[in-house]
Design a protein around this nucleic acid. Structure first.
Lengths: 184, 184, 184, 184
DNA sequence: TATGAATGAGGGTTCATTCAT
DNA sequence: GATGAATGAACCCTCATTCAT
């Protein structure tokens, strides 16, 4: 890939990341290209579908999330490792306005996004849940997908919301996993 | 108010309720007026702001939710009463696509919605939480507002989501309230 | 229909007729609405599909063409009547740039156009052909549809073409019908 | 000209011929360059104007048409020779969607195309017409240009048209030339 | 008061043409 | 010379809101 093209792609990804966190993943294409300093045609060349852009923007951060799991598992008790990793994922989701909606949209534009998320983060979270369950710190009554989606929804950033809200709610959810009682 | 005007308002509220649960609170105005069998002008006459319509549609259901609390408190143990009431609220939220986003939008269009919600449901939920705390069934470490918003987010209906997802997650959250451990 | 709406529809049809003869049936919608002095929304309200507009523009003229047949048949020898009617149709086609292409486009936008044309003009032309054949003035070796389409193609107006070209060619074609020889 | 440049020109001409017959002479440039396996820049280098490409694509075929006339004149009666040559020209036009429109477009892009056509094919057709007129088989009441353009229009390929349509119409036109009556 | 026609800004997408590599 | 990335004007269409009837 040519250097100028690479530069533009980078600029678009950076701009999209910023705009997504401000105006959501449905933000006008023009807003992104203006911030990136390129023409709209350049956006459509590199990302013919909106989901291609979303996927690309999210990809690197998802990968970083997945990569963080082994180190946390090695450094902490299983229950703590799980909590810390969810903190990590929470921080990621908190900058992706519209992410939860995109996951469930049913819009063909966003096909592939749920699959990508589960493929990358499902195994990492499952191993953390398994370890915490084995050690007795958690009663695993939730699937990795349910938990990821719950965090995605709870931590979906809202313009008028205090920043710590999502973390508090996820902590409460994890407490629910610890309790020995069955759900109603 | 003339009877025909009253009839139109009723038709609009009923139509809006249906459309909101199908296409979200951002649905085109035309969709609502067509279903109600009135012209768009009639919608704008009675509900100059979109939020006026949303508020009116939600009002009666919110009131019904609030009214359900005393009966549940009288008929069940405090912890059970709390869980049942949250089920009730969950069912309400599940039909209000876009409701959680509207609560936090910051868009002046939706001013007044959060205040109305808290004014009506805050006291009802607080008394349930207080009773459950007093009986030792719950370690109340969450405000009524936090909990209402958490349910609103978790149960926000998504096109491609299994129907029972929201209830499972809320049950898990309630379990978190029962556990004696402190959040991280 | 309200008088203002009727006035706009008339203005749109008049504008479309003018623009079609200048820039073809694929002309930008804006060009038509500007000439009509209305907003684009008004065009889309009355003619959701481009073909709806084309059909409406052509309709009245097609009907007039069809209506002319009986009078010509009564006033002239069959062969002459046929030639005169084709002159009439030629004059109509000469103002409809892109009309022939629309007839065969295969574009779903133009579905219904060939059917409408044949339904309205087919019978009129067939009766003229039948009469001319019966009187021996013509060897009917062509279907009404073939002939209509031939005229549509031959008389399709072109910016740089002398005005009388189409009429000369149609006259030649009619001579072909008169000749007793069979085609190769 | 370098051999690679020559090769690219050939590839472009071949690709353009194919695309023209499929999608018309207004087809996107990219379609042509992709089929040719070259970049768009190469197209614009060799054919700065769209008409340059069209002209070049058509040139060889026009020349072949012109060259066919003497052989046909030698092998057949004048009338037959004329018909056969028109068949030849018909086959050529049938693969050049948009060709007739380009001839009359008035668009400076297509300047030179009508002149080239007449310069090459006019004499060939005139000599055939002259011979047929001299032998009495044809009452030549049409100029070579009129006839060429009539065939170009009648045989302009349309997506939804039966393949034999053009030939039938041209045959009818030639019958018109045979008839001794005068046009109206 | 009710209606629904009209407006036009706004967002999506394509593609001819230029120009950096 | 060849390449194909970038540009941005141009067109399409939708829908919130206003206002004539």
């Amino acid at each position: 890939m040519r250097t100028d093209a690479r530069r533009n792609v980078e600029a678009l990804l950076e701009a999209a990341k910023t705009v997504f966190s401000t105006a959501g993943v449905d933000a006008p294409a023009k807003e992104i290209t203006d911030l990136a300093g390129v023409g709209v045609g350049t956006l459509y060349r590199h990302f013919p579908q909106r989901s291609d852009l979303i996927k690309a923007v999210i990809e690197r951060e998802i990968d970083a999330c997945a990569d963080a799991a082994p180190a946390l598992a090695a450094a902490h008790e299983p229950g703590i490792a799980l909590a810390r990793w969810l903190d990590r994922f929470t921080a990621f989701v908190a900058t992706k306005r519209g992410f939860a909606a995109a996951l469930h949209s049913g819009d063909p534009t966003f096909d592939g996004l749920p699959g990508y998320l589960m493929q990358k983060l499902g195994p990492a979270l499952e191993s953390l849940l398994d370890a915490a369950t084995a050690s007795g710190e958690v009663q695993a009554r939730i699937s990795a997908q349910d938990l990821l989606y719950a965090v995605a929804k709870l931590c979906a950033p809202m313009p008028n919301e205090e920043p710590e809200y999502g973390r508090r709610m996820v902590a409460l959810l994890v407490d629910g996993l610890r309790s020995g009682e069955s759900p109603h």
